[in-house]
């Protein structure tokens, strides 16, 4: 993997999110078109013990994180953008014992709001497990990580 500056920024962002470390999430790729994160398969995130399928909550966490961090690909400087809303549509269940990838892009950036969309997939991005749409708030230039987060979540 080539360590371009966007990958480095995304990795720095991801490494600060403890729950994502617990799930073992990693940056797969980042460029001007968007961000791809990887959620490794593990027994602890199984939601259906009969099939071994991953819980929707882990997919939601993957897509919330991917949509949220995809902002680094589209903003000139690091900004903390709390999620306003997130919607996940499931196309088909995830295959057990396979990693899940999340891809997201920002398709509209305004001074106050960022609109993102993405997919969760396993083998083929054209055959996604789920589609995701998320809206994020921009808190302005005063809201940098060093000065603490105002009301809202990362």
């Amino acid at each position: 993997m080539n360590k371009n500056p966007l990958v480095q920024r995304a990795e720095r962002f991801l490494s600060a999110l403890r729950h994502c470390q617990v799930l073992g999430m990693q940056v797969e790729a980042a460029d001007k078109k968007g961000l791809t994160l990887r959620l490794p398969y593990s027994e602890k995130i199984v939601g259906n013990p009969e099939t071994g399928g991953i819980h929707g909550g882990a997919i939601t966490t993957l897509m919330d994180t991917t949509c949220g961090i995809s902002t680094v690909c589209f903003l000139p400087d690091f900004e903390v953008c709390p999620t306003l809303d997130l919607r996940i549509d499931y196309m088909h269940p995830a295959d057990p014992h396979k990693d899940v990838y999340g891809f997201a892009e920002c398709y509209r950036v305004t001074p106050t709001v960022i609109f993102t969309r993405g997919v969760a997939y396993q083998d083929d991005p054209a055959q996604p497990i789920a589609h995701a749409v998320g809206t994020f708030m921009r808190l302005g230039s005063g809201a940098h990580i060093k000065s603490g987060f105002p009301e809202g979540k990362a």
Partner: peptide, 24 residues
Amino acid sequence: QADNIGNPVLPALHGGVIAGFMEH
């Protein structure tokens, strides 16, 4: 639970965990 934290500064729970909790 510390392992559910997303935002380390507030600190706050990861939004995905809140959603996963609600879904379950």
